[in-house]
Structures are given as structure tokens and as C-alpha cells.
Simulated assay, not measured.
Amino acid sequence: MRGNWEIMEAAMGGWWTVLMLIIVADVILRGMGMWRAARKGQQGWFVAMLVINSVGILPVVYMLFFEKKGKK
């Protein structure tokens, strides 16, 4: 009899790898966005990135368009 892990792996096939890559990318992007928002005192963006799960989209939007430019 096959174990639960083997059944799940067979059912998901290659999607398991894609899912793990998306999760890793989301954690990295969220961390970068939250770090930058915290350092620049933008509490609203920090909380939004903490609460809203956007698969990395919200942190990228913040870093590209809404991050206050200035001294680092």
C-alpha cells in the first residue's frame, strides 16, 4: 500500500515543484518589501504586505512604484 506522501506526489506531478518555487519567491519578495517599508517608516505598506497574500505581487508593486525614493 502506498503512503500518503507518495499518493500526493503522484497526484500533483510536476506541480509540486512549481508550487514550491512560487512559495519561495513569495517569501523572498515579501521579506524584501516588508524590510524596505519598515526602514522607510511606511507602516501601512508593511501591514498590507503582512496581511494580504498576493503571491509576491504586492511587494513588487510597492518596490517599483510606491517606495519613497531618497537616502538609504
Rank of each mutant, 00 (worst) to 15 (best):
Trp15Val: 09
Val51Thr: 14
Leu19Phe: 09
Asn4Met: 12
Gly44His: 03
Gly44Asn: 12
Ile52Trp: 10
Ile7His: 10
Leu50Glu: 02
Trp35Val: 07
Met20Asn: 13
Ile22Met: 10
Leu58Pro: 07
Lys71Ser: 11
Ile23Asn: 12
Phe66Gly: 08
Val24Ala: 13
Thr17Asn: 11
Met63Leu: 15
Arg2Val: 13
Ile57His: 00
Ala38Gln: 11
Val51Ala: 12
Arg36Cys: 06
Val47Phe: 06
Arg39His: 11
Gly33Pro: 04
Gly70Ala: 10
Leu58Gly: 04
Ala48Trp: 02
Leu19Ala: 13
Ile23Glu: 09
Gly41Arg: 15
Ala11Thr: 12
Met63Glu: 04
Met32Tyr: 07
Trp45Pro: 10
Ile23His: 08
Trp15His: 10
Phe66Ser: 07
Met49Ser: 06
Met12His: 07
Gly56Gln: 03
Arg2Pro: 15
Phe65Ser: 05
Ala11Trp: 00
Ile7Met: 06
Arg36Met: 10
Trp35Gln: 05
Ile52Arg: 01
Leu58Met: 05
Val51Phe: 07
Glu67Ser: 13
Pro59His: 02
Met32Ile: 15
Trp45Ile: 12
Leu21Lys: 08
Ile28Tyr: 00
Trp5Tyr: 03
Trp45Ser: 06
Met34Gln: 09
Ile57Ala: 11
Gln43Met: 15
Ala38Asn: 11
Leu21Ser: 10
Phe65Lys: 11
Ile23Ala: 14
Ile52Gln: 01
Val47Leu: 10
Lys72Gln: 08
Ile22Cys: 07
Lys71Arg: 08
Gly44Ile: 10
Lys71Glu: 13
Pro59Val: 04
Gly41Cys: 12
Trp5Arg: 13
Lys68Cys: 03
Ala37Gln: 06
Gly13Thr: 15
Val27Pro: 00
Ile23Asp: 07
Met1Ser: 03
Gly13Ser: 13
Ala48Lys: 01
Gly56Glu: 04
Arg2Lys: 10
Phe66Ile: 05
Leu29Ser: 09
Met34Thr: 09
Trp15Phe: 14
Lys68Asp: 12
Thr17Trp: 13
Val51Gln: 08
Leu58Tyr: 05
Thr17His: 11
Trp45Tyr: 14
Arg2Tyr: 06
Arg30Asp: 06
Val61Leu: 13
Leu29Phe: 09
Val61Gln: 01
Leu21Gln: 11
Val27Gly: 00
Ala37Leu: 07
Phe65His: 04
Ala25Glu: 07
Ile7Cys: 00
Ala25Pro: 06
Gly13Pro: 14
Val18Cys: 02
Gln42Glu: 15
Lys72Arg: 06
Gly70Phe: 03
Ile52His: 01
Ser54His: 04
Gly70Glu: 12
Ile23Leu: 14
Arg36Tyr: 04
Thr17Leu: 15
Ser54Met: 08
Leu58Phe: 07
Met63Phe: 00
Ala37Thr: 12
Val24Pro: 01
Leu29Cys: 05
Leu21Pro: 02
Thr17Ile: 15
Met34Ala: 03
Leu58Asp: 03
Trp45Cys: 08
Lys69Glu: 14
Leu21Glu: 10
Leu29His: 01
Gly70Leu: 07
Val24Asp: 02
Gly33His: 01
Ser54Asp: 02
Phe46Asn: 08
Asp26Trp: 04
Ile22Lys: 04
Leu64Val: 12
Leu64His: 05
Gly33Phe: 01
Gly56Asn: 04
Gly56Val: 09
Phe46Gln: 09
Lys40Asn: 12
